[in-house]
């Protein structure tokens, strides 16, 4: 543990049973483009689910920890947040 680990390495430690469709929806990509210079969800999301692709927000829902931060933290309430279908999504094995 002498080197620090990246979010990709952290996410590799987690078991996911991803659904085929997303439980996270950016309602209007234009709001991210025109009103949200910080794209703050790309910073505070603990699983780096949100990635800005120049004109739209990519949502890597498969790696979501279902913490709810994006729903609460989006300054424009621009994220529709649901629980993944029963039995899907993140599966914690330990903590």
């Amino acid at each position: 543990m002498s080197h620090s680990s990246t979010i990709e390495e952290k996410q590799y430690l987690v078991r996911f049973n991803a659904d085929t469709k997303s439980h996270l929806h950016v309602l209007d990509h234009d709001i991210c483009l025109t009103k949200c210079p910080d794209k703050i969800c790309t910073i505070f999301c603990p699983a780096a689910v949100y990635k800005w692709e120049g004109t739209r927000m990519h949502v890597g829902y498969e790696g979501c920890h279902e913490c709810g931060s994006c729903r609460i933290g989006c300054p424009y309430e621009n994220i529709r947040w649901e629980y993944p279908r029963g039995g899907h999504g993140i599966v914690f094995r330990l903590g």
């Binding site: 920890h65 709810g68 330990l94 903590g95």
Partner: peptide, 10 residues
Amino acid sequence: SEPVEYLAHL
């Protein structure tokens, strides 16, 4: 030590 799981929660 070796990391074995990463978790986030509110």
